[in-house]
């Protein structure tokens, strides 16, 4: 498959702070890619570099094989939705959306009837028909966001970039917009890159997720691939809740306190290691048959499930254990734990 956007070794330095330390990523036409990471991981910096709003200190970004440096902002054809939306407050919704079309040089500018028609179509697409005459200050946050999206789509962008598209919205609106955006992408097929710090958002929306941490690309892959096969401890712990067990790997077994707690036959890690186990992958068992046993200290409701906190001798942190259909253990009860699935990384 062809590559639309090729990022090679992108680096960016702000004074003494290295925001990006050589990130490479190839994005194919029609993909929906999430740049996921905590704040300060370099994800917004990377987005601004793709947009051409900032300049590389090293590396290269190419569009359809053409170096970005050779393209003016207009020729890049980037549709950018800013985190603050950056709507022009003195222009109506209609004029905001038409801005990019009217800004074209005269010979490339569509006739005004054509501009009107495209604006109407776009507003229908983002379900804002009837609000053409409003000013941004007269819209809700979610509506503003969709105006920003329509404005970015108006220039028929090569790539659509979204900076924390749901960041400024409240929880209910976020959920609605998320589903709607997914649907919109599958209908229009725009190559899209969006930045988020919310794992759920990235996993739910994206075709592929690129995880950034301290200016480096930690892992890139489909949501299933990165969730089920995290490449680094950071990815593993960032993508969901985990319990970390310091273990010793010997002879295909991970040992905790001379007890074999997990069969580590498929890994090449040897010696001191960290075992990452998600709460849903810990199952209650009889204490006498289980190598991993402890005392239930708390049982709490955690959304749809209940969660037990189990204290294990020799571990400073209690283990979180999700309890599904089985009968919840009572406080103070001694339980055994079976690890169904875990990720093993050599100790740092």
């Amino acid at each position: 498959m062809s590559v639309l956007l090729q990022i090679d070794n992108a680096a960016r330095q702000f004074g003494s702070f290295a925001a990006l330390k050589g990130v490479s990523l190839a994005i194919e036409p029609g993909e929906l890619v999430a740049l996921l990471g905590p704040s300060g991981s370099g994800k917004t910096t990377l987005l601004r570099l793709i947009a051409g709003l900032d300049f590389l200190d090293g590396g290269r970004i190419a569009f359809d094989g053409v170096d970005g440096n050779a393209l003016s902002l207009r020729d890049r054809r980037i549709g950018m939705v800013f985190q603050s939306y950056a709507l022009f407050r003195h222009l109506t919704v209609r004029d905001n959306v038409a801005f990019g079309l009217r800004a074209r040089p005269r010979q490339e500018r569509p006739p005004s009837a054509e501009i009107d028609r495209r604006v109407r179509d776009l507003l229908a697409l983002v379900q804002l028909d009837g609000l053409e005459g409003r000013f941004p200050s007269e819209l809700s946050g979610g509506q503003r966001q969709r105006v920003a999206l329509a404005r970015a789509l108006a220039i028929e962008p090569r790539v659509l970039l979204l900076d924390e598209p749901f960041g400024a919205l409240d929880a209910k609106v976020r959920k609605d917009l998320r589903a709607w955006l997914r649907d919109l992408h599958s209908r229009t097929g725009h190559t899209t890159v969006f930045v988020t710090h919310d794992q759920d958002e990235a996993l739910e929306l994206a075709d592929r997720v690129a995880i950034l941490h301290q200016g480096r690309l930690e892992q890139v892959g489909t949501p299933d691939a990165i969730y089920d096969h995290p490449a680094t401890p950071f990815v593993c712990s960032f993508l969901g809740e985990t319990n970390r067990l310091p273990v010793e790997v010997q002879g295909g077994q991970a040992w905790l306190d001379d007890q074999p707690v997990y069969a580590a036959s498929t890994t090449n890690v040897i010696g001191p290691a960290d075992l990452y186990v998600r709460p849903q992958h810990l199952k209650l068992d009889r204490p006498d048959v289980s190598p991993l046993a402890g005392v239930v200290e708390f049982v709490r409701r955690h959304g749809a499930i209940r969660r037990a906190e189990v204290a294990i001798r020799g571990l400073s942190k209690r283990l979180d254990v999700d309890i599904g259909g089985e009968i919840a253990p009572s406080h103070g009860e001694r339980v055994g734990l079976r690890i169904q699935k875990a990720h093993l990384f050599a100790a740092a």
Binding site: A51, G52, L53, L73, R74, R76, R77, I78, G79, M80, F82, S84, A86, F88, F99, G100, A103, R104, R151, A152, A154, I155
Partner: peptide, 14 residues
């Protein structure tokens, strides 16, 4: 801030 100007420039305005 610069966001409005950046938005206009990415939309192709001179």
């Amino acid at each position: 801030g610069n966001a409005d100007e950046e938005a206009a420039l990415t939309l192709g305005a001179s």
